[in-house]
Structures are given as C-alpha cells and as structure tokens.
C-alpha cells in the first residue's frame, strides 16, 4: 500500500509518483484480468492505467480511492471484453488438429500458475457474480463497499453474494478432497 502523498504527487504531475503507482497496482490488476480470462490481459492493463492516469486529477480518497478507481476500470474492461466476445461468436467449429496456436490461453496459464490447488477449476463451478466478488475481495483486496461500488450493487447484496460464494467454494473443495 502506498501513502496518500504519492497520489498527491501524481496529481501534481510528478513522474516518479506515476511509476510507484504502476508498480504497486499493476500486478494486482494484471492478476485480476488474467483470472477473469481476458486473452490480452497485459494490453488491458495498459488501457486501464492510461485511463487511470488521465483521470488522476479527479481521484478522491487517497490511495484507497485510487485503488478502487483502478479496479473499477479493470472491471469495466472485463465487461467490455465479455460483450465483445458475445457480439463476435465463433461460427466455425473448433478443429484441434487445425489449431496452430502455440501460446496457451489466459485461463490455461492461470490454471498452470495455480498449481496443485486447482483453484481455477474450483472457481468455474461458481456463478459469475460469485466469482467476481471473490476475485475482487481476495485478489484485489477491496472492501465490501468498494466491491459494491464497482459492481453497482448494494453492500448487503455483495455481502450475501460473498457468503454464498464462500459456502459454494467450501463445498466444492471439501467434495474434491473427499473424492481424492
């Protein structure tokens, strides 16, 4: 966590402050977008910080407010990516033999990074809203109020979603463990 003075310095146009903010927030935003399954999550990170630095003069609440704004922009990028993929459906059937791609997808890379815990596969058994709340709470380390602001819901509904997501994840993990 950075101090609020860094945000003030960035608002006054100091380049070092921008570098510190990027170094502090870029890994979390990159991980959030990667877990969400964006193909070009690194390019999305660039877009998020361009929008964030352009609007840094309007940031209120110090570093906490800046962090909330950064993940709000990242969440909006994720929603845009989902809508874009919905508008451009894959019409041709997938042929594994014809697939020449050598780079693994973001989800595959995430699953690889998750390692033995299989948390990626566990998350896929949750509803999208439940996944979003857990990612924003655990990966982005945001509060209930901040998550509610980002998702456009009330704090009570977010708290309810969070409880159901944790109970679902607990049942999935314990069931997998029992199967093994």
């Amino acid at each position: 966590m950075l101090s609020d003075d860094v945000v003030s310095a960035a608002q006054s146009g100091k380049a070092e402050a921008f570098s510190e903010i990027y170094a502090a927030l870029a890994p979390g935003i990159n991980g959030y977008l990667k877990v969400r399954g964006l193909e070009d999550h690194e390019g999305a990170v660039q877009e998020v910080f361009l929008a964030l630095f352009s609007r840094i003069g309007s940031v209120r609440g110090g570093f906490t407010g800046l962090r909330t704004l950064a993940f709000s922009i990242a969440h909006a990028r994720y929603v845009d990516d989902v809508r874009r993929r919905a508008r451009q459906p894959q019409l041709s059937p997938y042929d594994p033999d014809a697939d020449r791609r050598a780079v693994a997808s973001a989800e595959t890379a995430l699953l690889e990074t998750l390692g033995e815990s299989d948390i990626g596969r566990h998350l896929k058994e949750l509803k999208p809203d439940q996944q979003e709340v857990l990612l924003l709470r655990v990966v982005a380390d945001l509060t209930l109020e901040q998550v509610a602001e980002i998702m456009g819901r009330s704090t009570g509904s977010i708290k309810q979603l969070q409880r159901r997501a944790l109970l679902k994840l607990k049942s999935v993990v314990e069931r997998k463990e029992a199967l093994l």
Binding site: A26, K34, V35, V45, V138, V139
Partner: peptide, 11 residues
C-alpha cells in the same frame, strides 16, 4: 487464489 493474483508480474 490470493497468491495467484499477486504472483503475476506487471507488464
């Protein structure tokens, strides 16, 4: 899950 988000390096 928390370490997965932190482990990713910034581009």
């Amino acid at each position: 899950l928390r370490s997965a988000g932190k482990a990713s390096s910034a581009p």
